[in-house]
Amino acid sequence: MSDTLERTELREQALLDVPWITIVWNDPINLMSYVSWVFRSYFGFDRAMADRLMLTVHTEGKAVVASGSREEMERHVAAMHGYGLWATLQKEDA
């Protein structure tokens, strides 16, 4: 019994430990310069990092811009929506 409980707790812990990620998706409207500026001003990335992520969004259709707890990723997604970027969150392995 205690064994099962322990295993369940371990499994739940493992689930909680899976990080969440914030994804920004490409769209034909947002200016590349604006997206890069948002990444720098909101996340504090340097220009090289912000430009690389912006280009990944542009060429690959999306980029992971942050990972961490679900609450933290929800704050990032809400902030991105405030800037007009198309952002979603999900579990890293989803």
């Binding site: 809400a78 929506h81 979603t88």
Partner: peptide, 26 residues
Amino acid sequence: DRLFPSAYPDNDEFSSEFRRFTEDEL
């Protein structure tokens, strides 16, 4: 839909919960 995108496109329940907590302020 574009100004208030779904935060969880694959999960309606999480998505509406997110809207409930963020959309008014946004």
